[in-house]
Simulated scan of single mutants.
Amino acid sequence: MQLLPVNLAYFLEVARTGSVTEAAHALNVAPSAISRQVAKLESGIGVPLFARHPRGMTLTEAGSRLLAHARRTETESTTLVEELRTGRGAEARSVAVACSEGFARRLVPRAIADFRCAHPDVAFRVDVVARQEATRRVVEGLADVAVTYTMGPQHDVRVECAVVVPVAAIVPLGHELADRDRIGLADLCAYPLALASPGTSQRELFDIGAQLEGITVRPALVCDSLAPQYEFVRAGGGLALVGDLGDIEQSAATEGVTYVPVDHPVFRQREAQVQTATGRRPSWSATQFTELLVTSLRRDRSP
């Protein structure tokens, strides 16, 4: 059942397909009806939503913003209809979580396990994605909540919680740095390093810190997944970096590594955030789980 206004539904389908003809085919209506509703929408808003090309249509900046709104509205409408039909919206539904990999290792799955102890009929989907993608999924209604790293203010989402996350070096057991209380970048860079790619927040801050220190680094391994980095360290290939969410020491022995804090002010620019959408009615389950994530993140970062 469709709760979206007709013009918004038609706009959404054109945005998905990039063509009035394909949108009309998908919706089983005349192309002229699609064109008329999109034109009315553009006229009412007062700005063009699409750039017309011989082979299709692409969204303008205004169209992209309206698309994010339309997707949020569509997702909320679908959820509401399902809750009304089943009468189970307050207690049983699925919660979609988008998070970057550091949070998927322990914080998010542990929070899910805790939540399901009290609410076993709630199911979860966790998508492990890049930090910007996690935020985008919440903005567009593809996820109920995101747990991700950020640098700088966030304008398109509601930040439920934000904490500064220090960085620790992943060091092999028995390594000469393993007994240090903390190390500097110069200490770290004296060894082969496994680093994330330049597009990640941790690598961006590392590169800034190295530049400030006048250190030239050529990573021995570049990989955005943590599992190969851990294995690289355990095998004696060198050192790596990980965000210290406050829980890493709990499993250090079983992971066969030691964690040593890296002392440099540049890493204080990064925050871990729990994000939800603005202007969208969350389900009861999503609201309660978000509160649990906030509590878990704050607890893990407590001194």
Rank of each mutant, 00 (worst) to 15 (best):
V260C: 07
V257P: 01
A252T: 06
V242N: 02
L241R: 06
D263I: 00
Q273I: 14
I248P: 00
A277C: 13
T278G: 15
Q269P: 05
E255H: 08
P282V: 03
P282E: 01
P261M: 01
T258M: 05
G256M: 09
W284C: 12
S251Y: 13
W284H: 15
T276N: 07
P265H: 00
T258L: 06
F267Q: 01
H264S: 03
G279H: 13
D263N: 06
P265T: 00
A253D: 11
R280C: 14
G279P: 01
E271A: 02
A277T: 09
R280H: 11
G279E: 14
L245H: 14
T254R: 12
A272E: 12
Q273M: 11
Q250P: 01
G243H: 08
G243P: 01
Q275T: 06
G246Y: 04
E255F: 04
A277M: 09
A277L: 08
P282H: 05
S283M: 04
Y259T: 04
R280V: 15
L241G: 07
D263W: 01
T276L: 09
P265I: 00
L241M: 15
L245W: 10
R280T: 15
P265N: 02
E271N: 10
R280W: 09
V242G: 03
A253M: 06
D263G: 01
E255L: 14
R268V: 00
E255N: 11
L241Y: 08
E255Y: 03
P282I: 03
A252Y: 03
L241C: 13
S251W: 12
E271F: 02
G256Y: 10
H264T: 01
R270P: 09
L241F: 09
Q269A: 11
T276G: 08
L245G: 11
V260Y: 06
V266R: 11
P282C: 07
G243M: 09
T278W: 13
V257Q: 02
W284M: 10
V274H: 09
Q269R: 13
S283R: 14
H264W: 02
H264C: 05
A240H: 07
P261S: 01
Q275W: 03
E255D: 08
G243V: 08
V260S: 06
P261C: 02
L241V: 07
Q275N: 13
L239Q: 05
A252L: 03
A253E: 13
T276W: 08
A252M: 05
F267D: 06
R270K: 13
G256D: 08
E249L: 15
V262P: 00
G256C: 10
E249G: 07
F267G: 03
E249S: 15
A252S: 10
V257G: 04
R281H: 13
Q269D: 06
A240F: 10
D247G: 11
E255M: 12
P282D: 04
R281D: 07
F267T: 04
Q250T: 15
G279Y: 04
A272W: 11
D244C: 12
Q275R: 07
G238F: 14
L239H: 11
L245P: 00
V266S: 07
D244S: 13
T254M: 10
P282K: 04
V274K: 04
V266W: 07
T254S: 09
Q275S: 10
S251N: 11
